[in-house]
Design a protein around this nucleic acid. Structure first.
Lengths: 142, 142
DNA sequence: CAAAACTCATTCGCATGCAAATGATAGCTC
DNA sequence: GAGCTATCATTTGCATGCGAATGAGTTTTG
């Protein structure tokens, strides 16, 4: 095969990066149709806080795979809405501790079942077995 | 199982939305380490223009799954760098036609092989068979 | 043909997402 | 204990990404 033939064989639509982006797009659309009040990152933050209780902002970022700059924005917006509460760590004055408020707790408890629906709908084109395979393979390349 | 037990069973890390986001993150990191000059959306735009020749901005957006507002920003930045060329359609005055410049053509030709490497590296934790399965399953939920 | 409906592009506002630089604090090490 | 290093948070700058509103131009339809 000539070099040009090799090059011409490149199909954008089959590249992993492209399909990842498209799959993400569809998931976001489904998410938004079920949950209007929160974005996926905001939901992830609340869900994780519900699991772990109080943590520092950066630590939370680590748990939900967000860098410091990104998590700050997310947390600030949640705090502005009264869903999380912020407080300086008493000993280590660098750390900004985050915890759910009662309102935040109530909202996330309410939304977790909805999140299940979102996951189901996103994976609905696949059999249960294929869905499990997909999540497993994605985890491996994460 | 009590309702609370059901709720407590929710694991963020296993949700399709979360793994999609993380996989995307890793892919972006790999992409950036190989291609510094372009972002993935910019690359997609150039690669698609190389395939189809001249198209309108919106049409291009449709081909690479970008909405009108997003594609405009991407194209404007490519145009500012002289990688694409813009011109009003002579008949239909609404349309803004986009095409590669010589420079853009040269850049994308050069980068397509690199993109292959990026795809490979992203999928390197998987066997060839699993990689193909992953892309196929992702396509189904896109 | 004139009005309605549609398409294309643009703009605005908001929310990620990340790199890089900065300041404050903590911990380590000699 | 002073200095070096590491960590935490913040800020800035840039690039997606999408919803919604707007304006210009085109097509359809009554």
């Amino acid at each position: 095969m000539s070099p040009e033939a090799v090059e011409n064989d490149y199909r954008l639509q089959g590249q992993i990066g492209f399909v990842l982006r498209k799959a993400n797009q569809r998931h976001l659309a489904i998410f938004s149709s079920h949950i209007v009040d929160l974005t996926p990152p905001q939901f992830a933050a609340l869900a994780k806080l519900r699991d772990v209780g109080e943590t520092s902002q950066n630590q939370l970022g680590g748990l939900i795979a967000m860098d410091a700059a990104t998590v700050k924005g997310v947390i600030d917006r949640l705090a502005a809405r009264g869903l999380v509460q912020l407080a300086k760590h008493e000993v280590d004055k660098r750390r900004l501790m985050v915890r759910l408020t009662g309102e935040g707790r109530q909202m996330i408890d309410q939304l977790v079942p909805v999140a299940r629906t979102i996951t189901e709908e996103t994976l609905s084109p696949l059999s249960a077995k294929d869905a499990a395979t997909l999540v497993a393979l994605l985890s491996k390349i994460s």
